[in-house]
Design a protein around this nucleic acid. Structure first.
Length: 113
RNA sequence: GAAGUUGGUCGGAUAGUCGCUGGGCGUUCGCGUCGAGAGGAAAGUCCGGGCUCCAUAGAGCAAAGUGCUAGCUAACAGCUAGGUAUGGUGACAUAACGGAAAGUGCUGCAGAGAUUUAGACUACCCAUUUAUGGGAAAAGGUGAGAAGGUGCGGUAAGAGCGCACCGCGCGUUUGGUGACAAACGUGGCAAGGUAAACCCCACUUGGAGCAAGCUCAAAUAGGAUGGCAACGAUACUGCUCGUAUAAGCCAUCGGGUAGAGUGCUAAAGAGUUUUGGUGACAAAAUUCGUAGAUGAAUGACUAUCUAUUACAGAACCCGGCUUACAGACCGACUUCACUU
RNA sequence: GGCUGGGUAGCAAAGCGGUUAUGCAGGGGCCUGCAAAGCCUUAUAGACCGGUUCGACUCCGGUCCCAGCCU
């Protein structure tokens, strides 16, 4: 498997989001919150739900989305074939690699619950 | 040299690796390759337009907005140049800056008196019966605001009562496209403030917004018409005829949900030079060809440059305004100090 | 992306160009053997920054925050 992040590896439809939110496992960290559920496809998939209420500025939201996508792209070979929806929690600004490390940890933790 | 005023520019760079979104070319349809890919405010949505749909004979009223003058502009509440006022030693900055003598309203408290050709608390002058009458509007006091200011004369005390200067009003002349300014003459002074209170005057404005709108268009959703079934079923009706209704099948037609496409980026475009203009700007020549996503693209890591980079992320497109902004650079000017 | 409404003590909630009501909660007192209830009393308020005005919570701009509508 390559390090590419194609559109097939993304969750794009509202119906798919609703499916994962309903009955998905939840793992909370300091900066992130991940909801996950096993899916039929032979690959892990990523969805983003970055709320405007948590981060008001578009720049902040874009930053979290980029970090989430990059973390998923580099770590997808080691993940189970689940659908992951990533949400943010309000916190003080920190360095990017701190966020990335916690998110990867949550990805692995949520499938073990 | 110090302190300032003002106009403008940039706002990480280079190399490598792994990725993201369009486009061109190739393709074994897996992908490969070439080139492109956020801002000065993309922000707030405060104005003005383009564009689209709806409404609309024409005119007026209402409502809302704007408000010194002349220009610029597609348009504007913007910009430029100027006038006036205020602040600053100055460079310069700021100003919703028409009308209060068309009318109405409001003007608390304090104060004798608050908008009326005002009034008399303390205090002043005269007279007498010593607590009254008359004069006067200078002084004190109140207030945001009290019937021009300063000086001299004058008077019982006083007063634009008279005079000079200043301020104000009115008139004339001159300069200016104009706002306005200057000079001269004249009036003894006209009656507070508020129009970001109603209002008057002048000018402007139809409404909604790309989630506008246009096109295609599923179904086990659903409408209309025609045919079939049909010597059928149900109702009128106990029976026959007749009429009506519903369900079923087929065909045609239009509407249209989910969804998809389009609108969607080449434009009041940008750079350079020349010309006109004080300037905003305009004209000509020449060069360039410049994001287009839709759970929403520009990132991550490494190395070097002193280096964890300010404010901040396009969503139909432009012109402004307002607000946020680490740091760096360039131009013009002012004041003060020192040296020559 | 576009379009609306709001911000007043700790909480809720009126009104107005001239000292911001009222209720609950808080402090003190009265009442009571002690409390509750009741009564008296008291402190705490205009999101922020400018402008207009003699005077602004109110009128006019700007900023921030909250809520709602258009799918």
């Amino acid at each position: 498997m390559s390090l590419r992040l194609t559109r097939e590896a993304r969750i794009l439809k509202a119906r798919e989001y609703a499916h994962i939110f309903k009955g998905g496992k939840i793992a909370k960290g300091k900066y992130w919150q991940v909801i996950a559920k096993p899916i039929k496809e032979p690959r892990p998939r990523l969805g983003l739900a970055i709320s405007k209420k948590v981060y008001r500025l578009a720049v902040d939201r874009n930053r979290f989305k980029r970090i989430a996508r990059e973390t998923f792209r580099l770590g997808q070979q080691h993940l189970d074939n689940w659908g992951f929806v990533v949400m943010v929690r309000k916190s003080k600004p920190v360095r990017g690699h701190v966020l990335s490390a916690e998110l990867l940890d949550l990805f692995k933790k949520v499938t073990k619950i």
